[in-house]
Amino acid sequence: MGKKRKKGKCAKNAQNSEGGTYIEEENVIHAPHVLIINRGHLPSRLMELIKNTRSIFEPYTSSKLKVRSSNTFKDFVSIAGTFHIHHIISFSMTETAYNMRICRVPHGPTLFFKLIGATLAREVDQLIRKPIKDQVSESEIEIDGPENQIVLPQNISGKGNIKSHQSAIRLVEMGPRISLKLIKIEDGLCQGKVIYHHYIKKSPDELSRLEEIHRKKRKLKLLKTNNKLKLKRKIGSKKNSSFNSAKKRKKEIGIP
């Protein structure tokens, strides 16, 4: 037999002392979560941007999620309720552009963006460590003052960081920086009425006709859903009736 593999430090920290299972805090479990995914094969730089974006939403996202080519968008929507996912952010690529889509699940709306430019977290870190005068704005420079003084609730590593003493804090940009252009808004989940389109403008008459088409589609969808529910109830009722009849016959002939 091979040598038993030891658990690493991260694996041990992810277990509790009693059951050996990961325990997530209650406020984290029930908080709104966001799922950040890629659609199709993307270049390494864009995949790194996805990783950076996930780090922004921690712990309210799955940082190490691996999307398989067989996964469809519906697969992620189907698990949204179980994992308290309220939004899905997806990155994709066409022949001419990189795109980002933000969806409110389960009913929309959906915002479609074109990715204009991005600075990765590691590149932002390099700019902060070695600032170039022309690239660092006044908003990126913090000066110590009363507004950034706090009383420490506990001892913290570092010179002079003692419990109950005042210490200055500074916000440091972590990145990434993303520049986006809003292209389209749909009122449903990746479908439905187009509320806004950057390139296509419609007249009031055209908008009225489209609204009527979408109204009929919603009505038809609701009708289909109701018919499916009625069919399920009917099948369930027949099964219960057959079961009760069989049970009654067994009782009449003395079978327990």
Rank of each mutant, 00 (worst) to 15 (best):
M47R: 10
M47Q: 15
L49T: 03
K51N: 02
N52P: 05
N52K: 00
N52T: 04
N52C: 11
T53H: 05
T53S: 05
T53E: 05
R54A: 00
R54S: 03
R54N: 01
S55Q: 13
S55I: 09
I56C: 07
F57T: 08
F57N: 06
E58T: 09
P59L: 00
P59R: 02
Y60A: 03
T61M: 00
S63E: 10
S63M: 15
S63H: 08
S63T: 10
S63F: 00
K64S: 15
K64H: 07
L65C: 01
K66S: 08
K66L: 08
K66F: 11
R68P: 07
R68W: 02
S69L: 10
N71D: 15
N71W: 00
T72Y: 06
F73I: 11
F73N: 02
F73Y: 12
K74Q: 13
D75N: 11
V77C: 12
S78Q: 14
S78E: 13
I79N: 04
I79S: 03
G81I: 06
G81M: 07
F83C: 02
F83E: 05
H86W: 14
H86S: 12
S90M: 12
S92A: 15
M93P: 08
M93F: 08
M93T: 14
E95Q: 15
T96K: 15
A97K: 11
Y98C: 11
Y98I: 06
Y98K: 04
M100S: 13
M100V: 08
R101I: 10
I102M: 09
I102A: 08
I102G: 10
R104K: 14
P106V: 08
P106E: 10
H107R: 06
P109N: 07
L111N: 03
L111C: 11
L111M: 05
L111T: 02
L111V: 00
F112S: 00
F113T: 02
F113I: 04
F113R: 01
L115V: 14
L115P: 01
L115A: 07
I116H: 05
I116M: 03
G117Q: 10
A118I: 09
T119H: 14
L120K: 06
A121T: 09
A121L: 03
